[in-house]
Amino acid sequence: MLGYAIKRIALALLILVVVMLGMFAMVFVIPGDPASIALGPRATPELKALLIQRMGLDQPLLSQIWHFFRAAATGDLGIDVWSKRPVLDVILEVFPQTLLLGVVSLGWAVVLGIALGCLAVIWRDTFIDRLLGVLSVSMISVPSFVIALYSLLIFAVWLGWLPAIGAGQKGDWASQARALILPSFAIGVTWIGYIARLVRASMLEVMGANHIRTARAFGLPETVVVLKYALRIAIVPTIAIVAIGAGSILSSAVFVETVFSRPGIGTLITGAVEKRNYPVVMGTVLFMTAFYLVVVTAADLLIARLDPRVRDVLRG
């Protein structure tokens, strides 16, 4: 298990480096000189040169990459060109908002998804099962920004039940919770559908397995059969999907935070790209990739904990 954990973490670090190299390449492909955009059309060449120097853009590419990685390894992601604050501080200031949004979205996607999936299994092949199927597929197919825009229109504009923009008053939990409902609904709804389908399929598969019949043939109570023998296996694909979902939810957050004007990583990175604020772009991407890899690696380790076969296959 330890060897497997080390292998997974090493792989995660490698992915991180590859992503950052890719990110560097992309930043240099994007047209637009950051200094001209930052300083406007009437900037003098001297000012531009100064800014380019301060951003380190005059140095050779390889040296830029080297400096970036060396600094990143010590937790220094550079200085925000605009606000002159450390990028890490800027990220950490807004990250809790995105994390909260993601956790709440995924949280009720998991709760509702597992519940709907189990209902479909209980009422298998009935009208309810088919209705839940249609509902799930509809939820999967509608993109989160469409849900975001329409829920905004219906609940905030027409009905006026919920706030349209912002993250609520600081220190006022009720207002913050109310501001979370629409955005987390917009993000989570796709995942309710996914998880419901997945839980249904894996529960049906597991309940038909021979070892469930064995457990029943030895007279184990049905609760033990379902909770100890079936759910433990059926939950594995769901964990994997939820971990991958963490990544997808971060990208949905970019849309949804923009639509709802919520502070967060999404609005931060959109603004930074528009202003060619490269240290913030790079820092945010690095931070989010690292976060995503932590989640996925943790899920892999959890799955290996739950399923000894995975452990053995990966040990080789």
Binding site: A209, N210, H211, R213, T214, A215, R216, A217, F218, G219, L220, P221, E222, K228, Y229, R232, I233, L306, D307, P308, R309
Partner: peptide
Amino acid sequence: RKLRGRDIAMIFQDPMTAFSPVLTMGDQ
């Protein structure tokens, strides 16, 4: 259910799949 595993026991066809893959033999 109470008869099974007490008055009636069964040996299944496929030992490959007759036991749960995620629990130890002892546990089962």
